[in-house]
């Protein structure tokens, strides 16, 4: 059942594709993080309109399946006037917008966990809202929610498998192409699964270790 020479041949090809997957995921997480901060801040804003906008963002981007979001951005936007975008761009935009919604909720929990007294002291010392957000709230929210953010990274890497649908040469697409030509479905897809495990299992381990450490230290 296993064709060793073929395996050795496919391995480096998938290794290259792994790079693409990680690149796309990391870029999306990075962009999504900053969008997420904005949405979380909106959700916690004293202005009702901002709160509702933030809530609407989360409702839309968590309610619609990622696949549909991806198709929307790749197929619809170019026809709505936006210039034709490469699969890579569409993928990153779509993943970023989607994970921003989840990150916003994670960070919101972090923001709410910061003792109010610290912000009172900051306000009294003269820091304005932007300074408080950047210097005090975000650093602490990230520290408090790091395990959740790592989990989000894992989810993002798994979700990135969908970009294969718009033709981006990520892990999944590459494996599909290989399987289409050599018909060794089990072998190729098991190898594919193995690669995902290679990234995600260490990440999950790191996340749970971090969680245990944070619980012990009391942040």
């Amino acid at each position: 059942m296993f064709d060793w020479p073929l395996l050795q041949q496919n391995f480096p090809l998938l290794l290259g594709a792994l790079l693409t997957t990680v690149e796309v995921s990391a870029a999306s997480l990075f962009i999504g993080f900053f969008i997420g901060i904005g949405v979380a801040a909106m959700r916690l804003s004293p202005t009702p309109l901002l709160r509702r906008l933030g809530g609407a963002y989360i409702f839309v981007f968590r309610g619609i399946p990622l696949l549909v979001q991806l198709l929307f951005i790749y197929y619809f936007l170019p026809r709505a006037g936006l210039p034709n975008m490469s699969p890579m761009t569409a993928a990153i935009i779509s993943l970023a917008l989607c994970c921003a919604a989840y990150i916003a909720e994670i960070l919101r929990g972090g923001f709410l966990a910061i003792p109010g007294g610290q912000l009172e002291a900051a306000g009294l010392l003269g820091l304005n809202a932007r300074q408080m957000l950047v210097r005090i709230r975000v650093p602490q929210a990230v520290r408090l929610t790091l395990p959740g953010l790592i989990n989000e990274m894992i989810l993002l890497i798994k979700a990135s498998s969908l970009v294969s649908v718009v033709g981006l040469a990520d892990l999944t697409r590459t494996a599909q192409n290989l399987a289409a030509s050599d018909y060794m479905f089990v072998q190729d897809y098991l190898l594919l699964a193995g690669f995902y495990c290679l990234i995600n299992i260490p990440l999950a381990y790191a996340g749970s270790r971090l969680e245990k450490r944070l619980k012990g230290r009391g942040a």
Binding site: I154, S161, Y189, Y196, N200
Partner: peptide, 14 residues
């Protein structure tokens, strides 16, 4: 662990 670390799409393909 394997199910949790691999994408749903990959599991479907398999």
């Amino acid at each position: 662990e394997i199910i949790r670390s691999t994408p749903f799409l990959v599991q479907l393909f398999l």
